[in-house]
Design a protein around this nucleic acid. Sequence first.
DNA 1: TTCCAGGCGAAGA
DNA 2: TCTTCGCATGGA
Length: 290
Amino acid sequence: MTDLGLLIKDANNFEPYQVFESGQCFRWENDGDGYAGIIKDKVIKVKKLDRDILIENVSKEEINDVIYYFDLDRDYNEIKGKLQFDAYLREAMEYGSGLRILNQEPFECLISYIVSSNNRIPQIKRVVDNLSKMYGKPIKYRGKTYYTFPSPDVLANVQICEVQESRCGFRAEYICDAAKRVAWGDLDLSALKGQDYFTAKAELMKVKGIGEKVADCILLYSLQKYEAFPVDVWVNRVMTEIYIHQKISLKKVGEFARERFGNLAGFAQLYLFYYYRNKRGGVTNDGGIN
DNA sequence: TTCCAGGCGAAGA
DNA sequence: TCTTCGCATGGA
């Protein structure tokens, strides 16, 4: 902790560009001298300073929230060591060496991934941003206004047709349904954290708009279920090309991955997704275009 | 124009 | 259980 904020020295396993542009989160924004985002209703800024990372606007009381959000207590060298047995994954971990899995706020994560279905990342970001501007609380920071993600209570009291103004399309009814379930206590997100992976996943999949893939994303990016292995079009491509060599169902791809990577499957998924998508998708590793 | 996106639900086989 | 199809929206 310094006067400026939380300083992480020699942050080998934390590269802000990789973390925030990996497709796991949708609200962190690069404003030129770092990434700005919101943790627990407070604007936080993350800057890369040579080999160190500076996290600004954090008080002593909030330090544990920030450590939890960025998962700073986890030993990523140990995780990488355990996954070294896999040659392709070694390449992927080298390429995305600064990736980490965030602990996002579960409700925001749930709605964001409902929005993600059959959608593109820039459009997902736009919709999540629209929802925040429409129903979140404004926060001023250094002359700029940011918006918190709306609470379940607020979203539960909004009409479907109104939510559609966020440009979320057919997903509006899923968003409203999910918000009501959480607000009314039918779905207790904090309780899911104490349940095993399969039980928590089945609970999430009761919600309209949440299938295998979206449930895995919510479990992995907000509830610390690292057996989760979200299989989207990109992960399916890389798994088929590198490991499986034949067309099988997406569910079986996930089962294959859990068998191979065990309770580190979620970490493997993020490295594989980032490496394969950026290599094939024509995006470089530092924000540029090939 | 047509295709497709970090999929899902419903219907039919 | 598995396959097929429609779905709002917007960019290529």
